[in-house]
């Protein structure tokens, strides 16, 4: 049994945003992190490894520097990792991305007692689409928004969060689960893990390694093959600079209450 965990390197959004003059994201100026929800997926897999001794494999699609992220994950306890990388894959939308990652997972091989874990969504796109689309491509059932995962043999039971409560869902392996932060607190890298990470296997899967996989449809990969395309991207007009009120005493608060009351906001 193994758990394949799909992860993504993303710009850190816990600080300020760096934007190019043309309105695109200045990725060079922004720090990259492992997507937060993906960390919960990794932790969920490592917990199951602690319990069952199963193997944990991390898979990402991205540019070559994403290797650094995979090494960090292997220092946390991930056994093996795959980097799907190639110019042909660049600019893919969620459909094309999921097709490529599904082909990667299929190439690695998904056995009947395996699980695929993903984070719910990546903070650079917020689509939450790649997990379910990978599952569809691989004909795996899916459970999204997992806040608890229990495994008993080949049966997994998952608490799936809804806006107004939750569902308990039971499924047989193999299947795909997307993880949310309520699931766990990710562990840190260990010292021995850091020692071992460079001796753990990391394989690069490029276009040539995947192109003959039946899941790959050349007409729907990369920027021009993606079913969705960006017509325009733009920045909204700068909001009028807000008003800093003078002082911070009762008079200030009364002034504010007066303005809001006059404008019928309160």
């Amino acid at each position: 049994m193994k758990i394949l965990v799909c992860v993504k390197q993303v710009p850190d959004t816990s600080g300020r945003l760096a934007v190019n003059p043309d309105g695109t994201l200045n990725r060079a100026l922004m720090q990259t992190i492992i997507n937060p929800d993906d960390m919960n997926a990794v932790e969920a897999a490592l917990k199951l490894k602690d319990e069952t001794g199963c193997k944990v494999v991390a898979v990402t699609m991205g540019p070559p520097p994403a290797e650094g992220m995979l090494r960090e994950l292997m220092a946390m306890g991930v056994d093996e990792s795959y980097l799907i990388s190639g110019r042909e894959f660049g600019g893919s939308d969620t459909y094309a991305t999921s097709q490529i990652i599904a082909a990667g997972l299929d190439t690695i091989g998904i056995d009947d007692d395996d699980l695929v874990f993903c984070g719910r969504q990546a903070i650079d796109g917020d689509t939450a689409q790649v997990g379910p689309q990978i599952a569809e491509k691989l004909h795996l059932p899916q459970i999204t928004y997992a806040a608890e995962i229990h495994k008993d043999g080949n049966t997994i039971t998952v608490k799936r969060v809804l806006e107004d409560g939750y569902m308990m869902i039971k499924e047989q392996t193999p299947c795909m689960v997307t993880c949310i932060k309520e699931l766990n607190t990710p562990r840190y890298m260990s010292v021995s893990g850091i020692f071992e990470t460079y001796s753990k296997p990391m394989t690069v899967l490029d276009y040539n390694a995947l192109k003959d996989n039946p899941l790959i449809d050349k007409s729907t990969i990369g920027l021009s093959g993606s079913p969705t395309n960006i017509l325009t991207s733009f920045t909204p007009p700068q909001k009028e600079p807000g008003k800093m009120l003078e002082g911070n005493d009762m008079k200030t608060c009364e002034t504010l209450a007066g303005i809001l009351s006059e404008k019928h906001i309160i």
């Binding site: 917020d126 939450a128 379910p132 599952a135 491509k137 809804l162 729907t220 079913p227």
Partner: peptide, 21 residues
């Protein structure tokens, strides 16, 4: 939470584009 579970699954099966949120 339900729509975002259903939408991508259907778009992938129908082989079409989906824009999120």
């Amino acid at each position: 939470n339900i729509g975002r579970d259903l939408g991508p699954r259907c778009a992938a099966r129908l082989h079409t584009g989906l824009c999120a949120d």
